[in-house]
Computed example of a mutant assay.
Amino acid sequence: MIDVARVAEVSGQTVSRVVNGSPRVDPATRERVATAMQQLGYRPHRAARALRTGRTQTIGLIVSTLGTLGNSRMLQAVTDAAALRGYALTVVTLAGPDAVDDAFERLRDQGVDGAIVLNEATQFAREADVAAGIELVVVDSPADNRFGTVQTDHAAGARVATEHLLALGHETVWHVAGPAGSFAAAERERGWRKVLEAASRQIPDILRGDWSADSGFDAGQVLPPEATAVFVANDQMALGVLRTIAVAGRTVPSDVSVVGFDDIDDARQYLPPLTTVRQDFDALGAHAVQMLVDEIENAQPDRRVVCTPALVIRESTQMLQE
């Protein structure tokens, strides 16, 4: 660090601030220090820094599965955001409520400074005795004073999807929901139901899947012939619903309009391209990492962030034909 300071013509304290990601360095000086570090081949030693600061600059990620595209997108977003802040990532998967305590224990043993809990795993985190000594941010959870929360406004997304279908002339909207116990699924169902109640429309029975395309196909088989509009709680299940409708000899959107949720990369390649509600996974990951790192570094961040989704209209919806 002394050599870097000499080449960059700054103090050792300035080099230390740059290495530790302090905002108290102007961009030109930061660039000069970074250039000197590159010229000299200097790389901070994470283990040595941990001995000095008491922090490992490693955060944990607790997730129930990486089999869903939503969770995979969030993993990528969190990984990218953590790298930008100079933090490494340790991933722990769990199955069932008993595993969350083990997950916290494993993360504590690995010396992580904090952890992010994703989606379905949040239910287990809310019910668990949150591990002492680990700062925590939970993605998709009701507000809780024990940890920070980041979420999409799922109910608002479901509302705009359902309103869009009613505005196209459909008498009611069927709903293929996500799994019971999922906060996101419950919020999307709540938004859908409130719109139908406010419009004094019939509220069909819920059809439920597990986020997979296969479960969407199974749920679609239960749709009655009179169903002309379906709001599906994620794009993967919507893919299954589209296939069910096609197998039944009906067409989308002429016979049935379909709206999904997430706007995964492949949604525009569905046949027909899928109208859906876009979640900004990159923003969710960035907010979660920002909140956690600020908490670790005693920056007193906001403890709750809600991201607003947007309806993306494509060819899977159209005005109801008389």
Rank of each mutant, 00 (worst) to 15 (best):
R46A: 15
A186R: 08
D210L: 09
T251L: 10
A115Y: 00
D282F: 00
A198N: 12
A48T: 11
V173R: 05
V195I: 13
I2Y: 10
A184D: 06
E322P: 15
D265A: 14
A8W: 04
G157V: 09
V247I: 14
G240M: 05
L166K: 06
T53Y: 10
W192K: 00
E187T: 06
A158Y: 02
E163C: 05
L271K: 00
Q57L: 07
S254T: 14
S212C: 09
T58E: 02
F124T: 01
A125E: 03
Q318T: 13
R52L: 14
V293F: 03
V277Y: 01
S182Q: 08
A132G: 12
D280R: 07
P27V: 09
W211P: 02
N298W: 09
T149G: 11
T172W: 03
A185T: 02
V277T: 08
Y42E: 06
V293P: 03
A198T: 13
I296A: 10
M1S: 14
F183D: 04
E226I: 07
R108C: 06
D294R: 09
A184F: 08
W192I: 01
R190Q: 12
G60S: 08
A95G: 14
L196N: 09
V100Q: 00
T244P: 00
N71V: 06
G21P: 05
M291Y: 04
A5C: 10
A158F: 02
L274R: 01
A143W: 10
I134P: 05
T244K: 06
A248C: 09
L136M: 11
L165N: 01
D80K: 09
V247S: 09
D262T: 02
T149E: 08
E315N: 13
I245S: 02
A246T: 13
A233D: 10
D144T: 08
G96R: 08
V33D: 03
R304E: 15
A82K: 05
D266C: 11
A167D: 15
V33T: 03
Q318C: 13
A158S: 09
S22R: 12
L284E: 11
V138R: 03
G86P: 02
L136W: 01
R6E: 14
G157H: 04
M291D: 06
A186S: 15
T251G: 11
A128L: 07
Y87R: 04
A185G: 02
D102T: 15
Q13E: 12
N234A: 08
A227M: 11
D113Y: 08
K194Q: 15
A121F: 02
I245E: 03
G111L: 00
V63A: 11
P253Q: 09
V312Y: 07
Q318K: 10
R43D: 01
R193E: 13
V137T: 04
V138M: 03
G41S: 12
Q38K: 15
A81F: 07
P179G: 06
D210P: 05
